[in-house]
Computed example of a mutant assay.
Amino acid sequence: MSSKPIPLDRLVALREKEVDRLSADFAAREAMRQRYLDNLARMRSLCEDTSAGLAAGKAAGVLALNNGAYKQTLLAMVDAHAQDLAAHEAQMDVARQALHQAARGHEVLRQVAEKQSLALLRAQGVREQKVNDDLASQVWLRGRAS
């Protein structure tokens, strides 16, 4: 049972699809990263708003305790979210490397396919020229023989 080799053009197309898929995956990861950053900014803003209310002396007793607990919870959420963002960015680095590697592989295959195509066109041109030269020789020889 022998397997037929995949034509180079098909292999280039497959690599291009892989690059497109990895690009879309990376774009989705970048969008997720931006959501993390936006959420962190909003949570930090809430922490600042909470601190401003306490500093102004507007809160009394129980409200101040509640406000403090709220701020602690927010800070814990900010910390957890920042850790999640760091893990996500590490995954993005891996995805970025895979994308760059796939893009390089695709480009190399594309260049090889282009060179092969040009070589085939040159070979075809040489064959056509040889046929034309042979026909011209035959015509010349027939002209001399007459």
Rank of each mutant, 00 (worst) to 15 (best):
Glu18Thr: 09
Val131Phe: 01
Ala119Lys: 07
Ala80Lys: 14
Gln72Pro: 01
His106Cys: 13
Ala24Cys: 11
Asp93Arg: 15
Leu109Val: 07
Glu89Thr: 11
His100Val: 13
Thr50Lys: 10
Ala76Phe: 12
Glu30Leu: 09
Leu121Ile: 07
Lys4Asn: 10
Leu14Cys: 04
Gln83Ser: 04
Gly68Asp: 07
Ser45Glu: 15
Met77Glu: 11
Met92Glu: 06
Val131Ile: 13
Ala13Phe: 13
Gln34Pro: 04
Ala102Thr: 09
Leu74Tyr: 03
His81Asp: 06
Leu37Asn: 15
Asp133Leu: 09
Ser45Cys: 02
Ala145Leu: 15
Leu75Thr: 11
Ala98Val: 04
Ala95Lys: 10
Gln138Ala: 14
Ala87Trp: 02
Arg104Ser: 13
Ala90Val: 04
Ala145Met: 14
Asp25Asn: 09
Ala119Glu: 06
Ala103Pro: 01
Val12Leu: 10
His88Glu: 06
Lys17Met: 13
Ala80Phe: 07
Glu18Pro: 02
Leu11Gln: 10
Ala52Asp: 05
Arg42Leu: 13
Gln124Glu: 12
Leu121Gly: 00
Gly68Gln: 13
Leu99Arg: 11
Ser117Phe: 01
Ser137Asn: 05
Ser2Ala: 10
Phe26Met: 15
Arg127Lys: 09
Lys58Phe: 12
Leu65Glu: 09
Lys115Ser: 08
Val108Glu: 11
Asp133Phe: 05
Asp84Pro: 01
Ser45Thr: 13
Ala90Thr: 05
Asn132Trp: 00
Val126Lys: 04
Lys71Asp: 10
Arg104Met: 12
Leu109Trp: 10
Leu109Asp: 08
Glu89Ser: 06
Glu30Thr: 10
Leu37Phe: 03
Gln72Val: 07
Ala103Cys: 09
Ala56Gly: 02
Val131Lys: 03
Ala31Asp: 11
Gln116Ala: 15
Asn67Ser: 05
Ala123Cys: 04
Trp140Phe: 12
Val126Tyr: 03
Met32Tyr: 00
Val78Met: 04
Tyr36Phe: 15
Ile6Met: 10
Ala56Arg: 10
Ser146Thr: 15
Asp9Trp: 04
Gln124Thr: 14
Leu65Met: 06
Val12Tyr: 12
Lys130Gln: 07
Ala59Glu: 07
Ser51Cys: 04
Ala103Lys: 00
Ala87Met: 01
Leu37Tyr: 02
Asp49His: 00
Leu121Asp: 01
Ser117Thr: 06
Ala59Trp: 13
Asp79Ile: 04
Leu75Gly: 00
Val78Gln: 02
Ala24Met: 06
Lys130Met: 02
Val62Leu: 12
Val78Ser: 00
Gly125Val: 01
Met92Leu: 06
Glu114Leu: 05
Ala31Thr: 06
Ala52Val: 15
Ala80Trp: 07
Gln97Ala: 06
Leu14Asp: 14
Val108Trp: 08
Gln111Tyr: 03
Gln124Trp: 01
Gln97Tyr: 11
Gly57Trp: 01
Met43Cys: 05
Ala52Asn: 09
Ala119Trp: 10
Ala52Trp: 10
Leu37Arg: 14
Gln124His: 08
His81Gln: 11
Ala59Leu: 12
Leu135Phe: 05
Arg127Leu: 12
Ala28Val: 01
Asp9Val: 03
